[in-house]
Design a protein around this nucleic acid. Structure first.
Lengths: 190, 190
DNA sequence: GCGATTCCGGAACGATCGGTTCAGAACTAT
DNA sequence: ATAGTTCTGAACCGATCGTTCCGGAATCGC
């Protein structure tokens, strides 16, 4: 036998996710990726197949983490409060880390539309799962089914808009104000 | 003298705009561009400088047309009705032309963030002009200044979300329903 | 030690990228 | 017709793209 110690695949994949999140799929070159992941090109292809397969893996991982965070916050708070906290996810100070990279699902759905529709549709499908979680949460409040469906669709609009604001690097206090106003009028409509 | 008939620069530029709108900046290669514009590479560089300069021209043109459409519809309708028509802009049947390419300003702001910040910020600045037009329109309704500022920010969230929906190619009737619900609750908040 | 096996740095692949150059076709004015 | 000017197709440029391959280093069981 021989040399069992592989590099940390999980760590490398997480680093790749951050780069894809920040730069998008197309602008993240192989050179960028292997540098960020701190592995060699050979290990890259051995462990992840190719760039597209790795991206798909990161995309799904991002979606699972997002849904996981959403569901746990919804479990530990009232529906509307939990939703608000989810909207406020990743609102740090400006200029630091992931806080102004938007949402990988939204980014990918837009970037890859009419370029790689399979990727775009997959990201879009994950977003639909998020919206379904919104709807399920609203239903627990005794909200009528029709209203829950309509409101969750509007909540998705607001979330997408907010992730655009994030990637536009609008000041966090401005985004906080957007969230506050948005939930004020949504609350009134409930 | 000699050969005055240049190709139609305006037509070529409009064709380029459509390609950029559909595919984004990075995915629109020079080969794609000159094919869509039906001009030669030489004419391309003579008339437009380079790819980035042409894109900048298209981006600004798109912004002017968007703001122009917004302002004219706001002049010929009541503020809220005008806004609603603006939101419904480009909602044709599915699969035909520009209707599911989203908004070039939103697309660009997301795609080029952390890749070409000058392009991203320029698109973002144009979006800010659109939001300013929202706010000015709300102010004509006698809406208090603070409320006009807050509401226009939320309207921008909704618009961005809707343009994401468009590029995600969600069914037009679903988008129509999103607009309807959104304006119902915004109306209630006014 | 040793052979066997696995890992990985780096060179090199062909394709495509955005951009340039140039010879000759196309056209007007005289 | 001809001279003068502009346009354009095609070849070409260096750089970079994603991907493959190989030789040597590393680590195992024995």
């Amino acid at each position: 036998m021989a040399r069992p110690v592989e590099f940390d695949r999980t760590l490398a994949r997480d680093r790749a996710l951050l780069l894809f999140w920040r730069r998008g799929y197309q602008a993240a070159s192989l050179a960028d990726l292997v540098a960020a992941m701190e592995i060699s090109r050979s290990s890259f292809y051995a462990a992840f197949g190719d760039k597209r397969a790795l991206f798909l893996e990161c995309l799904d991982l991002f979606a699972e983490r997002t849904l996981n965070f959403l569901n746990t916050t919804l479990e530990t708070h009232s529906p509307l409060d939990g939703l608000k906290r989810f909207f406020e996810m990743g609102l740090g100070r400006m200029g630091d880390g992931e806080s102004h990279w938007g949402c990988l699902l939204v980014n990918t759905s837009l970037e890859m539309a009419s370029v790689d529709d399979a990727l775009s549709q997959r990201a879009s499908a994950h977003l639909a799962r998020v919206q379904a979680a919104f709807e399920a949460s609203l239903l627990t409040t005794g909200c009528p089914a029709q209203k829950a469906a309509d409101l969750s669709a509007v909540l998705m609009l607001l979330l997408e808009g907010l992730r655009v604001s994030s990637r536009r690097a609008l000041p966090p206090e401005m985004q906080r104000n957007q969230i506050h106003t948005a939930f004020r009028i949504v609350d009134a409509a409930l």
